[in-house]
Amino acid sequence: LPQTPVRAAMSTIQQLMIILNSANDTPSDNLLFYFNNCTVNPHEVIVKRIENMGITFKNKFAEAVGQGCAEIGSQRYKIGVRLYYRVMESLLKSEEKRLSVHNFSKLLNNDIFHISLLACALELVMATYGTSRNASQSMKVETDLSFPWIINILDLKAFELYMIVESFIKAEPSLTREMIKHLEGCEHKIMESLAWQQNSPLFELIKQSKDREGQADEPEPANY
């Protein structure tokens, strides 16, 4: 059958459903294994953060789309969290293989890592359902929920999301072409404009790399 916008959106949604049908709403046994291997066990903080961000997401979604759709926002968030845990597990497995490390305490206790991973998962869910919403216009929308809405409501810097996208795509081989194209589009928006806004962490990274280069250029003191 010819691919219409609605059909393309539906197949992406179905693909997302297939991916997440077997995913968990809470950390899997594998994830708990990694959490328990950490010097500082991040489990409680991770679960608490997901709860708190859930409240923020649902409130902002209802504000944007209409109070009558609060439950839809709740469902979207739930799907996003499943994808978040699923990709986290896959990321840790590949890092374990690549680095032969089992203790991911620093990474798993890094707030920015978790918020950017969750934001990436939620952006994908929003984009997948958003296209269908556009196609059906069934919901009253006060605010455009397309990117960068999700990083604004989660109070995440654009470049922080940028840092996770490639690893996210690598870690989740079942993403459809549309999903990957969408995330790539987000990357372009970030590098073309959002990453260059005031207070972006990109400026600090550029400064650090310049400092490193500067040190490399300075002649070594004689006592070396």
Partner: peptide
């Protein structure tokens, strides 16, 4: 994923990106 332009270099992964190596 063949359309996506992977840019991370060899030996660069999520741990390095988030300064947790």
């Amino acid at each position: 994923t063949q359309d996506y332009h992977f840019g991370l270099e060899e030996g660069e992964g999520i741990s390095e990106l988030f300064d947790c190596d």
